[in-house]
Design a protein around this nucleic acid. Structure first.
Lengths: 187, 187
DNA sequence: AGGCACATGTAAAAGGTTACATGATTGG
DNA sequence: CCAATCATGTAACCTTTTACATGTGCCT
């Protein structure tokens, strides 16, 4: 039920097509809520039926037509109501960590490769987040930005994403070092 | 489908009842995989039917009887196979961050309260993790531990959990400070 | 010629949450 | 005496994932 709220949060940035939302979920919301395209298209239909968002058909000549969605007043109100409720505890589903937990009874080399891939992905996300932050700050330092900006929500969630990915990288380095040392011992 | 693997990873620590697994999922696996009791009981039944785990009925006098589960050889092999596969990207579902993202169009005071509660929960988790780490290290420093311990998986996931909660606390402080300043401006 | 980006959709299957149900024991 | 802990289970419902389907335009 909260995919709805995540979509509305994303639409605060402005009108968007289902396709755009699907791709990285606006690149901002992606950090704390993920959804495959199919789920979004379905949910967007339902949200329109419920009056939370309004669709506008954009005819294109050299591309397929698309529907641009925007928040309605009812949608804004629903989002407001959502923020007033107590959020449910965050849920994490991390297969890599399940693998690491059982690495001593598992395929160490495969897990090491998976950690390395994870590190790489974190690095790429980090670069994107830093670029996004620079775009937001636009030359100002954090302090000035936070006093002047009309919205602080996106900055705060971005800050959480940045720290998370930095931590991922640091942790991956530790894990790789430990597992490598272990392999060396066995050899 | 990976709840199975998380359960098997938890059972590497030794025999456990459904109830014990349900409670904090062994307190170790809880960081990266969560599940309500009902899901566990259901899954445990299926896993037993599939031969991945074996159940042993323990009759108790002053308490309800319980079933203790342990990994079978087939279970160990399945866990091994799982570690050899590429893990799917981790999924996060964090309602609080959805609220923070839309805080500028939402109920600021409610969101602040939610962040404070989140900070509190992180603090408590951190204490538990630190206690667990101390129990694992048992007086040794990290370096010695990692050379001597028969298993490193649980330590590595614990390290990730520790860093995650520390980061949660740091971020909550930032977010609270920013939102408080904003409220002050409006007032 | 082949592959990616754009752009949406249907349907089935799997996975996860919530509500309801039971009942003894222990601790405050 | 009341609440929490121990210990499990069924059923209904909601959410999420996966597979399949379609078709143009652009770039190499």
């Amino acid at each position: 039920m909260t995919l709805r709220n995540a979509v509305m949060a994303a639409l605060l940035e402005g009108e968007s097509s289902g396709y755009d939302l699907a791709k990285g979920f606006n690149a901002t919301v992606a950090n704390f809520w993920t959804a495959p395209p199919q789920q979004l298209y379905k949910e967007l239909d339902r949200m329109e039926a419920d009056g939370l968002i309004a669709a506008r058909l954009v005819r294109q000549e050299r591309r397929p037509n698309k529907r641009m969605f925007s928040l309605t007043d009812a949608g804004r109100q629903a989002l407001r109501d959502f923020t007033a409720q107590q959020p449910r505890p965050s849920a994490i589903r991390d297969e890599l960590l399940v693998q690491v937990q059982s690495v001593d009874a598992g395929d160490v080399d495969a897990v090491r490769a998976a950690i390395a891939a994870h590190r790489q992905a974190a690095e790429e996300k980090l670069v994107r987040y830093e670029r996004l932050r620079d775009r937001l700050l636009d030359g100002r330092d954090e302090h000035d930005y936070l006093r002047q900006a009309p919205r602080v929500g996106p900055y705060l969630t971005l800050a959480r994403g940045l720290a998370f990915e930095q931590e991922n990288i640091r942790w991956a380095d530790l894990a790789l070092a430990v597992l490598q040392q272990r392999s060396a011992l066995v050899t």
